[in-house]
Design a protein around this nucleic acid. Structure first.
Length: 485
DNA sequence: ATGTTC
């Protein structure tokens, strides 16, 4: 059995591993999950989340979301808040794909209108939004201009004609983390990133055409507030990050932290993948500023992809993107560390929130949300597998106990290797088409790795977050077209 | 996730 004996049941949706579980734990570990999801978690989740609980400066608990699974250092689905004065920043708590995230875009088209054009739409998107390992984009800029992208994020896109002003408002943090400083970025990172804006990438990154069927609307009033106003309305959801740029930033600083963490700062960690530096140290601050550059590149990447999606829809339907109602619902980040103000032991305090495969979930009335979402709470986008659908949820004030955090996706149920042994990309494509999902892929092997059964049940994950009071289901979106990177 | 093993 994977679940440790020391685990205690707090409620049907919350479990706790006490500090007595392992030497060095400073706080307990808390896992949000139904018993079913808890039992599906791999041993690595419990090992890793209790290692996170040992990190200096951690506040309250090391958290794991219902979609938690084994990752680099931290579990994916992990969340840890640190005291910025005494705590550390750990690249393993953010992930290699810095600001991997999800964006959801509306149309005012319905399934009936899109169906006849679906093949053309997906084929054109597949051509116009480059995907796959090593893909490069159409935005031709110099290395220096790329540095401006890294400092400005979506604001660069607005200035250069790739964004509508309201897109920025509908993006977490306005599509730009302030304090990004390109002097902390290596030449190598710039070299890998400068031609990758507007590209999807590979792995579990995808672009999907989805439908909001009436029977899948959980909360009609909030669905309307989020822009879903008609039956079988079509939306576009996509998932990608900072590509080779963020990967290089993570690699550069992990290497640096490995050399200073113990020798210079005397920090002992249970796993070298948790290598870290005091947040206030020179190295910690440099990584924080570098990470923000990658965050901004990822926002710009998703923004330029949106620009392309609008062009494609406009060409296919012979109407402007404005006429097609192609407004953003929201853009959420999955892999970040951020200074946020939360209630800590009853007092407002600025803390360093690591979210690794976890989504911010700010509830109604929370500062930092667009006026439009003041009453509803922020839109939360939880991506499922390409076969089974995804969820749009709303943030809840109950998520204050996780410092405003909820789940981010399905979480793998089988390894990529296992999935490739069980499925063949070409056959999967044919099977999916029979079930009404037209899929194109940059890699047949990659497609097989993303087969539906390779992931946990997205309905279980979304439900668990709602039962735990972290986020509320608004509408379940089912795919009709998918581009798999 | 990733010029998928500098």
């Amino acid at each position: 059995m994977n679940v440790p004996h020391s685990i205690q049941k707090i409620s049907n949706y919350l479990w706790e591993i006490p500090v007595s579980h392992k030497p060095g734990m400073l706080v307990p570990a808390r896992i949000y999950a139904t018993e079913k999801l808890l039992r599906q978690m791999d041993q690595g989740v419990f090992e890793q989340i209790t290692n996170v609980a040992c990190l200096p400066g951690i506040i309250d608990y090391a958290f794991c979301m219902p979609d938690g699974h084994w990752g680099y250092g931290f579990p994916i689905g992990g969340m840890a808040a640190m005291d910025p004065r005494t705590g550390v920043i750990s690249p393993g708590g953010i992930g290699f794909d810095i600001n991997c995230g999800m964006r959801l875009v509306l149309t005012n088209l319905t399934l009936d209108e899109v169906q006849p054009k679906l093949h053309l739409l997906v084929d054109t998107l597949f051509t116009r939004v480059p995907s796959g390992v090593g893909s490069t984009g159409f935005v031709k800029i110099s290395r220096d201009e790329f540095r401006r992208v890294a400092e400005m994020g979506s604001r660069w896109c607005l200035r250069n004609g790739y964004a509508w002003p309201e897109d920025l408002e509908m993006t977490e943090e306005g599509g730009c983390f302030s304090g990004a400083d390109v002097s902390t970025i290596s030449e190598k990172a710039v070299e890998r990133g400068f031609d990758q804006i507007g590209t999807l990438g590979s792995g579990n990154h995808y672009l999907e055409i989805q439908v909001a069927k009436p029977e899948n609307v959980h909360d009609e009033k909030t669905a309307r507030a989020f822009g879903f106003t008609r039956p079988n309305q079509v939306a576009i959801m996509f998932h990608c990050g900072s590509r080779g740029f963020g990967h290089q930033v993570a690699t550069d600083y992990l290497k640096l932290f490995l050399s200073v963490s113990e020798k210079k700062y005397g920090i002992k960690v249970n796993d070298r993948e948790l290598s870290c530096a005091p947040f206030r140290s020179r190295e910690g601050q440099d990584y924080f500023a570098a990470m923000k550059c990658a965050v901004n590149m990822a926002f710009a990447n998703r923004q330029v992809i949106l620009h392309r999606i609008r062009e494609v829809f406009s060409a296919v339907f012979q109407r402007s993107p404005e006429e097609l109602g192609m407004n953003m619902v929201y853009d959420v980040a999955h892999n970040t560390a951020k200074l946020e103000t939360h209630l800590v032991h009853g007092r407002k305090k600025e803390i360093l929130v690591h979210r690794k495969g976890a989504t911010r979930s700010f509830g109604p009335g929370r500062e930092g949300l667009p006026d439009r979402y003041h009453e509803t709470g922020q839109p939360v986008i939880i991506g499922g597998s390409m076969e089974t659908g995804s969820y749009l949820l709303a943030g809840l004030s109950g998520a204050s106990e996780t410092f405003g955090t909820t789940a981010h996706g399905s979480g793998r149920a089988m390894s990529r290797h296992q999935a490739k042994k069980l499925y063949r990309g070409q056959k999967l494509q044919r099977d999916m088409e029979e079930r009404g999902i037209y899929v194109r892929t940059a890699s047949w092997g990659g497609l097989a790795e993303e087969a539906g059964p390779a992931y946990k049940n997205i309905d279980d994950v979304a439900e668990a977050t709602e039962l735990a009071g972290l986020s509320k289901r608004i509408v379940r979106l089912v795919p009709i077209g998918n581009i798999k990177g």
